[in-house]
């Protein structure tokens, strides 16, 4: 799922590059300062290993026993895996950046779009994968299950982000893109999740000192919440563009069964945002309505939880 050159116009590609460079700079600083020692050489060598293990092709028929998929294969990405092992999403950002840079020399991905690819696979994949794992762990979900979920989402959400980038670039329609890439990555994600669990299990047996389990426990809930809110907000902004303009099931049935009554009926309460949109603002209004609603729900739930805590 590497975006090739020319599929994203130069201006947009530059924005993704800027975002990625900020994250890469922080990731380099993490490898230099936040680890116990300056670990830059070690990560350079490890990146070579990650590059090679991405070339291991795994048969798709292992996951879905459909004869159509004979010969189709996928490979693991390892963003969630590396983030979980080193207990930091910055490890994933750093390693994925290196791997993607070398892959672009093979024609996998490209130069102008490398920023977008790093954003999808390294940053979104690493952060979502890691904080899903930590968050579910905090909710006392069993570790393998949390890890599987992290691995799965670290494949699915980048695919959704990629569909959005291609749609913003005007290269591919949004709904078909999400359906196509989401299905493919959703299936490959199952494999990614399973492999993440198996590999983590093997590594913790062989070299328990590599895995930074203490940090897993210490990770603050606020960070998990922040990443979660960021991801949900992203999905909330995305939602209006995906929503069908056709009436939903309930409305459809109602209008079939009692078309006269509906037309004569006067709504008892005028909603704040009719049809989930701020009138006169087009799609921007729908996005704004959802963001406002999302923020309102968030504030209310934080308020309620405070009150309950005090009581």
């Amino acid at each position: 799922m590497h975006i090739p050159d020319t599929f994203i116009p130069l201006g947009q590609a530059a924005i993704y590059w800027i975002i990625s460079i900020l994250f890469i700079a922080r990731a380099v600083k993490w490898a230099r300062k936040d680890m116990k020692e300056n670990m830059i050489p070690l990560f350079g060598v490890l990146a070579a290993g990650i590059f090679v293990l991405q070339t291991i092709n795994i048969a798709a028929s292992l996951l879905i026993p459909v004869p159509m998929f004979t010969g189709v294969s996928w490979h693991i990405v390892g963003a969630a895996l590396t983030a979980i092992i080193f207990a930091s999403p910055w490890a994933a950002v750093l390693l994925m950046t290196m791997v993607l840079a070398i892959q672009s020399l093979f024609g996998d991905g490209g130069i102008t779009v490398m920023g977008a690819n790093i954003l999808n696979m390294g940053i979104i994949g690493g952060f979502i994968g890691y904080y899903t794992f930590i968050g579910l762990g905090k909710l006392s979900v069993k570790r393998p299950v949390a890890m599987f979920a992290g691995g799965w989402l670290s494949m699915l959400l980048p695919a959704i982000a990629l569909s959005f980038e291609l749609w913003l670039a005007g290269t591919f329609p949004l709904k078909q893109g999400i359906l196509l890439m989401g299905t493919f990555q959703g299936i490959a994600g199952i494999g990614e999740g399973l492999i993440t669990v198996i590999v983590f299990g093997a590594i913790i047996k062989a070299r328990p000192d590599i895995v930074n389990e203490e940090t897993h426990k210490k990770e603050s809930t606020a960070k998990v919440a922040a990443v979660g809110i960021f991801a949900l907000l992203g999905l909330a902004v995305a939602a209006p563009f995906l929503a069908s303009s056709n009436p939903d099931g309930l409305q459809q049935t109602a209008s079939l069964v009692m078309s006269n009554e509906i037309n004569n009926m006067i709504a008892p309460i005028t909603p704040l945002f009719p049809s989930y949109a701020i009138p006169g603002m087009g799609e921007a209004g729908r996005v704004a309505a959802i963001v406002i609603g999302f923020a309102a729900i968030l504030i209310i739930s934080i308020g309620i939880s405070r009150v309950i805590k005090k009581a």
């Binding site: 070690l42 060598v45 290993g49 990650i50 693991i76 492999i195 590599i210």
Partner: peptide, 28 residues
């Protein structure tokens, strides 16, 4: 069984990961 094959692939990956990590340690 598919599970077995998947496990073998997982072990290949783990082995590569650990070996490259250890090479990194030695080099460092």
């Amino acid at each position: 069984p598919r599970k077995w094959t998947l496990e073998q692939i997982g072990y290949t990956i783990s082995s590569l990961f650990i070996r490259s990590y250890e090479q990194g340690e030695r080099t460092y």
